[in-house]
Amino acid sequence: MQKVIKVGMADLQVVEEPHILTTLGLGSCVGIALYDKQKKIAGLAHIMLPSSTQIKNNSNLAKFADTAIDLLIKEMVKRGASTARLKAKITGGAQMFSFGNNGGDLMKIGYRNVIATKEILELYKIDILAEDTGGNHGRTIEFYSETGDLLVKTIGFGLKTI
């Protein structure tokens, strides 16, 4: 039976065909979906911050783009995926609130999360097949292990599959 597995904030999960991964209400966080098409293994991480190295309280590996991607790859390889076959789709990284021009670091956190995610994926030589990032709205995503499709739902900006 097909199951829908929820990925919380600062969390990551891996499933195999035919199961579905979902994360609800992504804002400035980034959803990183990795897929091994041959083995139909899907992994999804919901990261909050760009880097574990700039922070003391970094025990939760799924919270940071760098450590989450590393851990997600390891978990997928454990299930039989190959790093060389992994492809990525990324979503989120919105700026929910704006304060004119003087947003400060926190306001740009969504953007910084996206940049960090791309840099780290590049280090692992994982191509980004599609992305739906930025803007000022939230996103709920569903990631299908059968196809690798990523469904993005929004309030007022409709639905799309990337």
Binding site: M9, G25, L26, G27, S28, N57, M96, F97, G138
Partner: peptide
């Protein structure tokens, strides 16, 4: 000045959650 956002609770809460997460969960 205030900034208003009407959207999914999870997405809006990600902003304070990220801020909190730098010191605590």
């Amino acid at each position: 000045v205030p900034s208003l956002c009407i959207d999914m609770a999870g997405a809006i809460l990600s902003v304070p959650a990220i801020q909190f997460s730098q010191t605590s969960d």
